[in-house]
Amino acid sequence: MAQSMVKEFTKGLWAEIPPFRLVLGLCPVLAVTKSVENGIGMGIATTFVLVCSNLLVSLLRSVIPAKVRIAAYIIIIATFVTVVELVMQAYTYPLFLKLGIFIPLIVVNCIVLGRAEAFASKNSPVLSIADGLGMGIGFTLSLGALGAVRESLGNGTILGSPVFGPEFQPFTFMVEAPGAFVCLGLMLCLMNLIGKK
């Protein structure tokens, strides 16, 4: 039991790390990674929704009729997204404003629905939590890494403090829209290089 829990948890961190290995949920990845702070904030919000929805879907898996399961999952997910939205509005208002419509859009993030359908609907609650947590942390790490590359090259800072010294000319292409696509594409290429021998 403990062994399989560790397995489900760690697969989200490398072997199936979203969004690199599972090319799902790209929109927030590209949109909010202008800075490390935004990326990690988004990652934590998504992790919370993933863990809670995985748990509830898994608990209700024998109750929900197969025909209406997708609709039922969407309602479960939307409920937790509303919770996150209200909590962030109350306690982290500046971050809430920066992430904007991407917080309600966690509802349509394919990773959350994908894990509910592919994993939580078939496995026990404990394993589903491990899966949700692993995927969520993997997602947060990816967003943080992409945010770090884009923020350091495009703005010369990481988490707001300068890293390259005063002579550095910011490479603003990186924080603009086209840079997001190119940067993610190149990081994916790097992952392929390391992963495949």
Binding site: F181, V182, G185, L188
Partner: peptide, 19 residues
């Protein structure tokens, strides 16, 4: 090139169109 294939080159292409 092999590591760039599929999604990776797709994203870089998308970046060029975005440009």
């Amino acid at each position: 090139p092999k590591p760039l294939q599929d999604t990776s080159i797709g994203l870089v292409t998308a970046g060029m169109i975005a440009l």
